[in-house]
Design a protein around this nucleic acid. Structure first.
Lengths: 209, 209
DNA sequence: TCCTATACTTAACGTTGTTAACCGCATGAG
DNA sequence: CTCATGCGGTTAACAACGTTAAGTATAGGA
């Protein structure tokens, strides 16, 4: 009686088509260009079919971003962990920024638009939460090894995250030549992550950077 | 022949009505709730009348934000300047964050949505540019007084701004209880501004904070 | 008194996300 | 074998949006 499995498979196939078509549009043209009818045209289905697979447009894009964020953070976690917690934080920050600037539309939707506070159950397993866990672990490591002073690791990690978010958000929002007082230097991301680290590090670790 | 002046005055009156009605909607309900027809209803005019005073919806909201940002930054500049450049930066950062979290819709529209790269002529006099000038001046002061090391004041100011922008942007986007690893502490803004300062300060200034 | 410019309105267009109603076909039951 | 059922799909439509074209009235200057 594998019929229900086949149906499930076919259903998943259509879902994939929708997601892939939406991804194409989303990456190249942004959220508001992802229209139900354009997706439908691309996959040669009717527009309303999408509503059999996703609750609404936001649900679709949410699923899309969820996928891509998960792929990134797997890759992020697979990176060789440096032996120095300071370098770990630095590497995390740079990779985070690289992802954000490479996928500006994903980043914008996930972190710059107010989400519908839905699904509080799977929030602990969300890619964002997992990625933050990596940062938090690195901060705890820095505290344990004496590079950072004793304190609230959560708040320090949140502050570091906020700083990195700031650069990424501005970089993907403001055209480079439109920054106040002249164009932005290419090392701004590094400047921010290093300043953040120095700002929380005790003196010896500061010198080590 | 004061007739053209009277016409100009009447025109400005309608413009004011539009802006005030739009402000009301914008502050309480956000950008997408500011619809031309709702503004028109509020001021008892036809929707198309708005197009006699503003080019399009973005132009309207832009003018609205321009006004309110100017008012803020006048107030910001009028604040008593502390004698310490470090405290000046700190005060600037805290006031900036306070404004951003108090007027989230204004902040979102001005700094979190990609603008049409219009009017490059009056960019130097824009409130954003002027506010950044205050920060840049404080940074230059910190360098001159030996609190910050010699270096590119523009980049340092941009990095500090980016950090502050990050906290503000996250605070007005993520509900406080939805931050990773638990709710956000109320002193997060202060943590970020202080860490940013420490991150750029030379050792003596660090101890002075 | 007529002409003209200007502020304003009505009506409409083309999109958008989303829903209601319907349709056909494969599937499982009798 | 027949028939009812349910599910995936489509067509048509709705309400709302920003925006534009066309028309109207009114006030000022000639």
């Amino acid at each position: 009686m594998g019929v229900i499995e086949r149906r499930e498979r076919e259903r998943e196939e259509v879902r994939r088509k929708i997601l892939d078509a939406a991804r194409e549009l989303f990456m190249t043209e942004g959220y508001e260009k992802v229209t139900m009818r354009r997706i439908a045209d691309a996959i040669e289905y009717s527009a309303t079919t999408i509503y059999n697979h996703f609750e609404d447009k936001d649900d679709l894009v949410q699923a899309l971003c969820h996928e891509d964020f998960a792929r990134l953070f797997e890759h992020l976690q697979a990176q060789p962990a440096p032996s120095d917690p300071i370098q770990a934080i630095r590497q995390l920050g740079l990779a985070y920024a690289a992802f954000g600037t490479s996928y500006p539309n994903h980043y914008r939707f996930m972190f710059m638009t107010p989400a519908k506070f839905e699904h509080p159950e799977d929030r602990d397993t969300s890619p964002g939460e997992q990625a933050f866990g990596l940062l938090r672990a690195a901060v705890e490591w820095a505290i344990a090894s004496g590079h950072f002073p004793e304190g609230d690791a959560d708040t320090i990690a949140q502050a570091l995250w906020a700083s990195m978010h700031g650069v990424v958000a501005l970089l993907i929002t403001l055209p480079p030549n439109f920054w106040p007082h002249g164009p932005v230097r290419p090392d701004l991301v590094a400047q921010v992550v290093d300043a953040g680290i120095r700002g929380f590090a005790v003196a010896p670790a500061r010198a080590a950077l």
